[in-house]
Design a protein around this nucleic acid. Structure first.
Lengths: 236, 236
DNA sequence: TGGGCTTCTATGTCTAGACATAGAACGATA
DNA sequence: TATCGTTCTATGTCTAGACATAGAAGCCCA
């Protein structure tokens, strides 16, 4: 089969990646302008000399990226992003700190079993942990965590004295759904002291709830001094 | 072909979704514990009575979710997430404000063509825009934007007097790569005044750079009073 | 025992079909 | 002209193959 375009694409790419690159180029160069219909699958299939499945794979990637949209019978068209979607990747705090070339250390501040709340942990209660993650000895992240002992009874046996709940959860527990919220706030007196920042200093706060199916597993509130931490995401 | 499991799955789901659900259940219930190998594709293919492609589609989704990892010759295994990945979705500020039931309004503060910087916009310069997005008349987001006039010369003709650069960019310009950074900071005097918050009040700041291929398109710095705004993400 | 070579296999990619179906387009009717 | 069925088609899903290939596992030899 003939390839009907001859740009010097990386030969190590798979065919669907090559095709996707070429489609990207056409969008880029305005050959397929925003708002316009792009050719039907079968036309592209012939043009690229590939199977329909391969062309579809290239197209699906563009759909994921939000560059095109497709509707049955109506065909596919290039869209200007109505909202930018990107992948947010929050690493283990230990890795984050070590990747910056700092020494990681950990301190457990509080650990307590509390009664359930809002229908969560009504049987076995909630494990409440407060701990601090440090970079080169300086406070980097304050972690407030609750673990649902109904769904994760094994957590009750974890002391979390030398490693944080995160490390354990990551190793032992898979999650199917995660809700992450990122916000800013001024440091209250108690938190300011723990994080060694002035009162009312700006904090970047990452809150995360984790579920397995419908079951609530754990919730975390991670507070960082604003100067030290930012969240970065890449496009899909 | 027989389906070898009989849970009452939604019949409206596609087969690969059904299979994925069943796999999720097995991970959930510990039948496939974290760290363990899961059966080979061909075994699953037989068990589910589906084609290999269909089983692979279910598995790929689990890989995307970060629940399993696969390696040639070595097979597939369940992994505890070493880092949580989720989808970050930043809507048009107008939509954000209207979806909260507030009236959106816009004010252009500054618009100027500046010389290029760091090899960006060296030919035609950079269009620099500062504008304010309001909810029910109250400041909600301060937008600092630069647009690369080398790659987007059409932007020079846009007055941005009644709608912001975002609306125009979204309608006209596709992007292949977006870098988003989320941070917190204390409001400097000038910004505090524009946003009608006390000096040093915490701000949530979303910065975004947009590219088409390697070409730099635009850069935005969006500042919000911390109490009014947070970023939410859902799992993939 | 350890390093390098070969073999082998589970996953990755691709093809060429078939059938399902949302929903756009069209035509009939009021 | 507006509304309501009907038709039709581009996309969505699935199948059953073939071949490619990373890299784990085993082997040989020093």
């Amino acid at each position: 089969m003939v390839k009907h375009f001859s740009a010097p694409y990386d030969r190590s790419m798979s065919r669907h990646d090559e095709i996707r690159q070429e489609m990207l180029r056409r969008i880029n160069d305005g050959e397929w302008p925003v708002g316009s219909d792009i050719p039907h699958e079968m036309v592209l299939t012939e043009e690229f000399g590939a199977a329909r499945g391969t062309v579809r794979r290239a197209l699906s990637t563009l759909v994921e990226q939000g560059l095109i949209e497709r509707r049955k019978r109506a065909g596919s068209r290039v869209v200007g992003q109505t909202s930018q979607t990107s992948k947010l990747h929050i690493p283990l705090i230990r890795e984050e700190i070590e990747s910056r070339g700092h020494a990681y250390s950990y301190r457990l501040l509080e650990r307590e079993v509390k009664p359930g709340l809002h229908g969560i942990g009504t049987r076995n209660g909630l494990l409440w942990v407060r701990c601090l993650h440090l970079a080169d000895g300086a406070p980097f992240q304050l972690e407030h965590r609750t673990i649902n002992l109904d769904t994760l009874p094994q957590a009750a046996e974890q002391p979390f004295r030398v490693t944080g709940p995160n490390e354990w959860l990551v190793r032992e527990v898979p999650a199917t759904r995660v809700i992450t919220r990122i916000s800013a706030a001024a440091a209250e007196a108690e938190i300011a002291e723990i994080l060694a920042v002035p009162e009312h200093a700006p904090l970047l706060i990452v809150s995360r709830e984790t579920f397995m199916g419908e079951a609530h597993l754990t919730e975390a509130r991670l507070s960082h001094p604003a100067e030290q931490y930012q969240v970065t995401t890449l496009s899909i």
